[in-house]
């Protein structure tokens, strides 16, 4: 479970104070699937970076599984990142010149897993995202969707308490985006994985159980989705094709 209380993040840009987060409080329960929405500049990426322990808040409290994160030193934060958090980026951030398997093994290098187990768990994670056949492909030999799936496998391999994704479909077309959301839903459904992702697309957001709306660094509203949509890459493809046909008419 993660909980933040009265979180603020203030940047100083050329002498001006920018309040990226201005008193955000929220709670995400274990096994929940939540999306965070908001226009650009609303502070959603800043919030995600703090939730992922990639950045530290200016003030406020952050608890992850009861541990108070904002009081931790650099080494303790690294430990949390290695053991509790899986993070998926919009730009995938895979290591070039390194194959899929080694990319996925990376977090296990830093959490002390022995080399043999690293290999097995990384393989299993890649199979889970449907890339069991492409273990030794390098990022430049993979499509955008496949690269993002490698990134998801990397985020999953350390069995994190929470999977965070910052605009995971932002760089993908709608069909590939649906594939990614389908993987999140499968993880949520089959493994009760806690998933939080940021999106600016209301349709993508409606695939989660709860939508948190951010604006101007504050939580504006929370919306329970009564019946979350089920991601279906094939239907998405049909719709896209239908749109194309309409345009060509």
């Amino acid at each position: 479970m993660i909980e933040v209380k009265d979180l603020t993040k203030i940047y100083t840009l050329g002498g001006d104070e920018v309040r990226a987060l201005d008193g955000v409080s929220l709670k995400i329960n274990d096994g929940e699937m939540v999306s965070i929405m908001g226009p650009s500049g609303s502070g959603k990426s800043t919030l995600m970076a703090i939730l992922g322990c990639l950045d530290i808040p200016t003030s406020g409290q952050y608890f992850i599984d009861g541990q108070e994160v904002e009081k931790m030193n650099e080494d303790e934060l690294a430990f949390i990142r290695a053991h509790k958090i899986g993070f998926v980026f919009q730009q995938f951030n895979l290591l070039p010149r390194t194959d899929a398997l080694e990319n996925v093994m990376l977090p296990l290098v830093y959490d002390g897993t022995n080399p043999k187990e690293r290999m097995e768990r990384a393989k299993a994670a890649l199979e889970l995202v449907g890339l069991g056949e492409r273990l030794h492909h390098h990022p430049n030999q993979l499509s955008g969707g496949q690269q993002q799936r490698v990134a998801i496998a990397r985020a999953l391999v350390n069995e994190p308490s929470i999977l965070l994704a910052d605009e995971p479909t932002g760089n993908l077309d709608s069909k590939t985006g649906a594939e990614i959301i389908a993987i999140f839903q499968k993880l949520h459904r089959e493994r009760h994985q806690t998933v939080v992702y940021v999106t600016h697309d209301p349709f993508t957001a409606r695939h989660t159980e709860r939508i948190i709306h951010l604006a101007d660094g504050q939580v504006k509203s929370e919306e329970i989705v009564a019946e979350p949509l089920i991601a279906n890459p094939f239907r998405q493809k049909d719709e896209a094709d239908a749109k194309k046909m309409e345009v060509s008419k």
Binding site: G52, L54, E74, D75, A78, F79, R81, A82, H83, F87, N93, L95, L106, P107, Y110, D111, R154, N158
Partner: peptide, 10 residues
């Protein structure tokens, strides 16, 4: 940045 994001210490 990425190495640190997935758990590498200083």
């Amino acid at each position: 940045g990425l190495r640190k994001a997935v758990g590498a210490t200083q």
